[in-house]
Amino acid sequence: MQFYLPIADMPVNIFLVLAMGVAVGFISGMFGIGGGFLMTPLLIFIGIPPAVAVASVASHIAASSFSGAISYWRKRALDTALALMLLSAGIIGTATGVWLFTILRSLDQLDLMIGLSYVTLLTVVGGMMINESVRAELRTRKGQPATLRRPGSHTWLHGLPFKMRFKRSKIYVSAIPVWAIGFIIGFIGAIMGIGGGFILVPMLIYFLRVPTATVIGTSMVLTLVTMASATVMHAVTNHLVDAVLALILMIGGVIGAQFGARTGQKMRGERLRLLLGLLVFSVGLRFAWQLVVQPDDLYSLRLVGAV
């Protein structure tokens, strides 16, 4: 069934978009991530203008992370204080990202920048996840404990000043790495049109040693606030949020997420992390392929302005 999208200015097949929402929702529910890094490229692939895709996916991620955040809230598995600290820096990061976005767009290098950041981030993060979970798997085979986390172990990050205590997460860390992580997530979120959950979760675990119990819930609160405000910002500045597209994606997304979460809970954490690592890594390779292989058409068009 074809439906004409009022802002993207093109007809799409509702069932195709709904199916994409369900599929990405399934993955996001399974791994506790927003799934923007999958959804944005998929929408661009079916012909949605990239700017509309980025702006509309923001509200789709807001919906799925809110539904996730509520259930983590009920389980008391989120750290509000930590989320607020991350947010305060995240907003500055988003503003910086939006500023750079505009400059790169005017220089015709935005596609390249987005492509390169996808490749770098996805292959590095994916590679780290695969490495980590394969090692854990090997250790379990040898009969050693699977977890890498050693409570009480300190890195140089713990020597930094402005220490703060986050009670829910039971950590005592400097505010500097917390702000740095918040800034980075906000920045790449604005540039790449993603929530950044798949980067935030490993960062919180590896650098701040946030326990797995609170990490996903906290990451979801951060994603929710940045994506909801990104929706409003995109609507005010570019008028590019397609509410109809967003609604179809949301409905598919929240349904898929429920089934994904059930599947995810049946699997072991290490196995789950290996799968996510493989997924992230292969999406990264896909982007690398796109940059290296000669495109079908060397020329492309970009609208400068209507008269």
Binding site: S59, H60, A62, A63, S64, S65, F66, S67, G68, A69, I70, S71, M227, A228, S229, T231, V232, M233, H234, A235, V236, T237, H239, V241, A243, A246, L247, M250, I251, V254, I255, A257, Q258
Partner: peptide, 21 residues
């Protein structure tokens, strides 16, 4: 009405998320 429109879309997202949960 960019701001109201954005706000309405964001609220729609929250409502969808809440309904699902």
């Amino acid at each position: 009405h960019g701001f109201l429109y954005g706000l309405a879309t964001a609220l729609m997202a929250l409502l969808t998320g809440w309904l699902a949960s």
